[in-house]
Every structure is written in C-alpha cells, then in structure tokens.
Design a protein around this nucleic acid. Sequence first.
RNA 1: GCGCUUGUAGCUCAGCUGGAUAGAGCUACGGACUUCUAAUCCGUAGGUCGGGGGUUCGAAUCCCUCCAAGCGCACCA
Length: 582
Amino acid sequence: MLVNLLKDRFLSDLKELIKKNKKDDGKSGASLDKIFKSIRLEEPKNKEFGDLTTNAAMVLSSYVKKKPMDFAEEVRSGIFSKWKMDESVAIINPGFINFNLKDRAIIENLNQVFIEDKNYGGNNSGAGRKIQIEYVSSNPTGSLHIGHGRWGVLGDVLSAIYVRNGYDVQREYYVNDYGTQAKIFAACAKSLYLKKFGVRFAYPQDGYPETAVSIVAEKLYKDYGDKFITSSSEAITDDIAIEKNAIDIMLAFIRNTLSSIGVEFDNWFVESSLYENNNFEKVIKFLKDNSLVYEQENALWFKSTNYGDDKDRVIIRSDGNPTYFASDIMYLINKKERGFDSLIYILGADHHGYISRLKAIGKSIGMADDAVSIIIGQLVRLVEGKEVLKMSRRKGRGMTLDDLAKDVGKDAIRYFFSMNSFDTHMDFDISLAKKKSSQNPVFYVQYAHARIGSIIRKLKEIKLDNIGEKEINEIENSSAVFCVEVLKNLKSFEFKNNSERNLAWVVSLFPDIVYDACKNNAPYFLTQYLYRLSGEFHYFYNHNIIISRNKANIKRLVLALAAKTVLKNGLGILGISAPEKM
RNA sequence: GCGCUUGUAGCUCAGCUGGAUAGAGCUACGGACUUCUAAUCCGUAGGUCGGGGGUUCGAAUCCCUCCAAGCGCACCA
C-alpha cells in the first residue's frame, strides 16, 4: 500500500512532533486521538495541488495553539523534509500542505506489481479473522428479480474484496424452507402437478404467480411422474415430498440464475435445519433462563426493546407456532456458534426494518456491537426509456433476473451493479442495458486490457532488437519478473511525461483501493478505480508509442504490463472477464 | 402518523467522519486513424448541490424546518 502506509507514517511522525511541541498534561490524550481521526492524507481533488495533501495543520492548529500556516511550516521542516520520498512541499492558505512524490518512489512501488503479480493489490489486514457475508437469501418460492441480482453481485464482489484483504470469508445463502410461505408454494405446485393427471386441486387464493410455479410443476411431473400420488383414485399425495422437491427445484433455478452471473455461495443454509434435534426447545429454554422473554396473551415475547429495538417481538404465537423472528434468533445464535468474528447481512431496502431487531438479537446473546453489520441495499427500479415499470414479484410481472442475465450478459450485469454505492436508488434502464455499445463502461475497461494484449501480440510478431524470447515468454505467461530487473537497473528513472507518471501513480494506488473498499464496504470504489485506470491507460496509449520499427520502449512496456496486471486483478475481483482481444 | 434511504449538469452517478475554483461518464457540438485495436483520444457546452433558516474562519457535507421520491411500520414469511 502506498497512501495508507504513508499516512500511518505521517501520523506517527506527527505525534512525535506534537509531543515535543507541547508538554503533555496527561488529560489531552483522548481529545488528541479524536482530532487525529479527522486528519487526512489523501489525493487532492485537484491534481494541480500535487500527489497528496493533508489538512493536518488546520485540524491541529487550535490544539497546538498556533496559526495553521505556522504549524504547517513546522510540519514541513520537522517531518516532510526528513522524508526522502517527497519532492516539493508547498504550504497554501489557509494551511494545506501539498506535496509530490519523487518519481523514484513511484517506481519502487511499481516493482511490487511484478513481484506480487497475481496477488498484487491484496493485503493481510484481515488475517486470522473469520467473517460471514449473507446475501440474496430470497425465498425459494419464485424467480429472482433484478434487485436480487444487485445484492448478489455486490455480496459476491464484497466477499472477494474481503478475501483480498486476508479475511477468511464464508458466503452464505439462507433458504427459507420452513413455515407458511413454503407450504403455500407447495400447495401451488401440487395444484398444477395434479392438473397433469386430470385431478383438480384448488390453487391457493393467495398463491404465487402461476408462471413461476408452472416451471416447478412441470419438472416435478417430468422427473418424478406420478411418484407423489400415493393412491390413484383419491389423488392422495405425499405432501411432504412435494414440498421438499418443489423447493429444491426452485432453489436449483435460483442457483442457476445466480451462477450464470457468477454469484456463488460456500454454504446454502436451510432454515428447517434450525428446528432439528430439539434445537427450538433448547433455544427457548436458553432465552427463558436468561430472562430474555416473557409471556403475554398466550404468546411468548422477546424483550428486544431492552436492546434497542422499537418494539418487542413475538417468538411463539398464541396458536403455538413459532414466528419468523424465532428463526432469526436461532439463526444468529447458530452463526455465533460457528465462530465468526463478524457477520455481514446484505438486505434489500424492503427489509430495513430488520436492522434494529437483528442488532437487538446480537446484543442480547452477548455479541459485540460492531460484530453484526447490516448493509441495506436500495431497490432497483426498472425503467424503459422514460416509463417506470412497476415490478411486482408476487404478481409475476416485470423482468426477472434470468431474463436480464440472458439479455445483457454476465460482464455487463456485474459491472453495472458494482458501479454504485449501496445507498443509490438505482434506475435500471432496460433498453440501455441491452445495448452493447460504448455507452456501457465495462467495454471501456475491458478494451484497455485488450489493447495491452494487442501490444503483446505485436511484440511476438516483430523481431525486436531489445527484447528476447525469454522476456516474451514471461510476458505471455503473465509473470514478467524481468520487469523487476529492468526497474532496478534504471540508474536515473524519471518519467518522460505526465501520462507515464500518472499511469504509474494510478497503478500504485490499487492496493489502497482494495483496502479502502473493504474498510468502507464499498465495491464501487473498485469499479470507479478501474475506470480511472483505464482512462489513464487509454490516454497514455494515445500519446506514447511503445513499439517503433524493431525496438520497444522498455520503460513504457513495463508500465503497460503493470497496468495490465492491475486491470486483470481488479476485474478478477469484480468477477468480470479480462479479454486479451476484443 | 412514525421510521429508514435518497434528492448534485438534459440523463446515470461520484464527492457527504466540514476544507482550496463542486467532479466523472453518457448525450449535444467541433476536431484526430499511411504509425502497437478510433469500443480510443483531444476540445467546447452544460450546475440557485430540492427550498428556507442556523452553526463556523470555511457547508453539497453538520443541526433545524419544509417539499418531493422509494421503502418499511403484523401473533406474514
């Protein structure tokens, strides 16, 4: 990491400087920590101000009782002048400290790309920590809608980001196969299934749309024939088997759809398993023993208000049946027992009411406050031109995720859904998504990668004076270690122009982006970064010739190869292909 | 009625743990292929940051209020 490491170093140097500056009165430690949290070392909005900027002098001025400009001067002489990496340090009113890195410092960073190669971008900040991310978890009672695609992609990419940060990640899908909705779905399937045999069984009034169910009934019939009919004349069926198989079939459809856009899970957790081995009774006993519940009007209530929820919740209804919330409790206890350090739930905005109650459960069973984090993803609205298409899953209208996946393709869908923050209410323009035009930024990024691919092909075609077989082989196997030597042997490396330097700079930022994307649970950092990198590369490509006649400009080639590795690794995290040719 | 989220350029979005002239892309208009892929590049145009108050040296960012949109407020799952 470049920026984050520099920042750490800067902050610790700054602490030293302040110690010298001010006699510690022993009381100010806490407030100083607070001030330090608002210190930034980052790229300025405007490139003219340099590579990096810090607000430290302004933030600290009142603490050290000095004018920002004066303290900035001390920071410059006391810290930055001792760093050998910085080039020029400017202090600008009202107290910004701006500086540029020496070209050599950027080059040394570039070396890491070739040393770490496929692992470049990753770090070990999460080493030894087990984290679970649960996402999609749509009821297996119908096909997925487009919103599910968004959670799926975001969950998948977020998982990949955590993996790259050294975490031990488990991706989980929670299957609601228990309770009334599953029963209703099974009854729908049964009705359509029996129809095949000319037997009438009323379709539930509040049932699911037939379009979704009919695929399931069709498959039940095709795969099992009359297996579920236990008595021919009365049309008596094995309802338990129908329910189980209907749900399994639906789940297989869901799995296929998700798989078609590259969204996979390590674990498909079945709700009904929570009720095995008298677990329900055990959990209820546990809750009673810990005085977390009370009885009222024949129902059993969970005291969630004690833990920050806005109302208490029923666990066992007055008719004796457990509520969905009971499953939530058992599920969270189960997750805790599996030994995760932290849990992430990605929920659709239609479930935001869950935040407080899930957190309440977590607290009540003694989990740390920040151990359970819930990410709310806003819904996707379908738009065609200017017309808003109301989608309703229960009514079976609107485009399904499966339709979209087939229309748009995996790469575009993943890029599109990774582009925005979770909080964005997205409008998904179907007609735009279907266009495979340059309006779709995924091509822009992929094209950058493919262009470098074509440089490599050119290298092979032409006999070059300064690049041998060995190097070309290395490049082809995408393990261009020779670049490390090239970079090391450059006696005085300076960038010829801004496009070279900017490209190298952006390449060097990749590990910071992977780190920050994780800290902020923000997959879109990556997407935006890759777009920026691609832009930087396209500019570089248009302004610098790498191969002329029978000679390659080695420095530029190294730069292009570094960019290629980062593009490939970045697209890899997004789960998007990095084509050699387009 | 209460709560969560959002409101930034014609469109889609960044920026929101306060900082320097508010940034990209798409669209529109004008340029660049005898040279490693023009799915690219360069340039121009486009903004009362939903409205109004407040806090501050400084507000798109924090607070209050109003308006608008989406979504929730079950002994449904």
